[in-house]
Measured scan of single mutants.
Amino acid sequence: LVRYRTISKIPQITLNFVDLKGDPFLASPTSDREIIAPKIKERTHNVTEKVTQVLSLGADVLPEYKLQAPRIHRWTILHYSPFKAVWDWLILLLVIYTAVFTPYSAAFLLKETEEGPPATECGYACQPLAVVDLIVDIMFIVDILINFRTTYVNANEEVVSHPGRIAVHYFKGWFLIDMVAAIPFDLLIFGSGSEELIGLLKTARLLRLVRVARKLDRYSEYGAAVLFLLMCTFALIAHWLACIWYAIGNMEQPHMDSRIGWLHNLGDQIGKPYNSSGLGGPSIKDKYVTALYFTFSSLTSVGFGNVSPNTNSEKIFSICVMLIGSLMYASIFGNVSAIIQRLYSGTARYHTQMLRVREFIRFHQIPNPLRQRLEEYFQHAWSYTNGIDMNAVLKGFPECLQADICLHLNRSLLQHCKPFRGATKGCLRALAMKFKTTHAPPGDTLVHAGDLLTALYFISRGSIEILRGDVVVAILGKNDIFGEPLNLYARPGKSNGDVRALTYCDLHKIHR
């Protein structure tokens, strides 16, 4: 019993810090008490220290592992850092350059016999395009090294910054494609005289377009951006097909006994025919423009016929181009109408809503002055909100995010209106959640004399007048207030005048 009563005193000691020596009952000389009392004092002292730490809000209350900052290894790049964003855009520009100039170089340097010394005699450094290609190869190699040090988000939505895990993730992902696209074939085969082989191998750079397509997928929600990307894709495919079309004609031209190829026909049409040795002929500019003209006309199913396939190889390629053109029509131009419709969806919704308003007016036989006010209010409210119901949009977000959005939407009023000066951010967040926005066209009466005042109004834009009878008592403008002081009276009061809008007004109100 003594032991039980001794232990039962522990909660009292913990909360009230009572010393055991003052209790005459606990001072009985028993061996059990002498053993338990020192333990009680020690526990009391420890609990006292913990309570003191909690009340003082000291940093040592938290466990040590929670006080440590997340460790980022040296030379690790955050995937959302500004440097990584700028670097990704730079790589994107280099990939676009590669997609345009690599097929052009591979096709127009394929057994090209233009006048001038061969590239091997001039030297590697004197070729501007080769120098640019070398810079692109170096940048792609540097990009691989950067990807080995860039964080990523795993399946659990955690940012991984450990170098080993980053390397394994990159090896399992895009490393092989990036490595093949970054191989400097110019340096590996330079001086061997195989410019045709170098041009063909350099087309491996186009593998990076797969990554670019995935990154550009984030802009699919913007109709104008999608339309622009589709047109660029169409032009890029036409450019690639033009390079292939020229390569076919250029390879067949020296081996044909009869002059029936499209390059021969082009030379005869523009007065620059090929001679018996295969030299001469149109310039590279004429060849490229004509090839691009043929691919565009074939892809769009126009086909004027002034550039036509004559050999079997050219006919087979033309059939493939027609098939590609039909697929592009289905996948690209078939979506253009939907994209344009999405661009004008706001206008369509406006006309639909206006039609419903006019049908309501016609069905209920609203008189002319009231009908005009109804239409003007709808037009003004639509121009202010673009038909978007803010309350319906915010309803799907958590309250903390709703408060931040409301604070942002009402920031101008909260910053410049005098009653809100000096208020804490928590108070402003709470008030912003209570605001209701209303609009009024010129001549609209917001409050009639004798109406119950259940709200306090803040003028965000425009001006109003307060009338008693036919006498203008006051004219209020931006950041002015009218209405009933909230919670100042037990019952809502009545208006002693009319409140009429002089201009288009936007008002925020808080109800009782």
Rank of each mutant, 00 (worst) to 15 (best):
W89T: 03
H448C: 07
V95E: 01
Y288F: 01
T385Q: 15
T120I: 04
V95I: 13
L414I: 09
F185I: 06
T233K: 04
H73I: 05
G346E: 11
Q269M: 04
G396I: 07
I96V: 12
G123R: 15
R205V: 03
Y97A: 01
S326N: 01
P163R: 01
L206I: 05
T311D: 01
S283F: 01
A423M: 06
P442K: 09
R429N: 01
E314G: 01
V226G: 11
A155L: 12
K287T: 01
N156W: 05
G303A: 13
A381S: 10
V100N: 01
G422S: 10
Y219V: 13
A449N: 08
E375H: 14
A99E: 01
D133Y: 01
P369I: 02
G164S: 10
R349V: 08
A167P: 01
H73L: 05
W87E: 01
Q253D: 15
D178Q: 01
Q402D: 01
L236N: 01
N310L: 01
A69E: 12
G422W: 01
A130C: 03
L431A: 02
Y65V: 08
G305I: 01
G271R: 01
G193K: 14
Q253Y: 06
E112S: 11
A348W: 15
W89F: 02
F108S: 01
E375M: 12
D143M: 01
L216W: 04
L327Q: 02
Q379A: 08
I91C: 04
P442L: 03
F435A: 03
V447I: 11
I77Y: 01
L206N: 01
H448P: 01
L94N: 05
P163C: 05
A119D: 01
C417R: 06
E196F: 05
P70W: 01
V307P: 01
V86W: 06
Y65M: 13
W262K: 03
I237T: 09
L67I: 03
K84S: 02
P367V: 03
P117W: 06
H380R: 12
T300H: 08
C417W: 09
D143Q: 01
L110K: 14
T98Y: 01
V321C: 03
G267V: 03
A440I: 13
L227C: 04
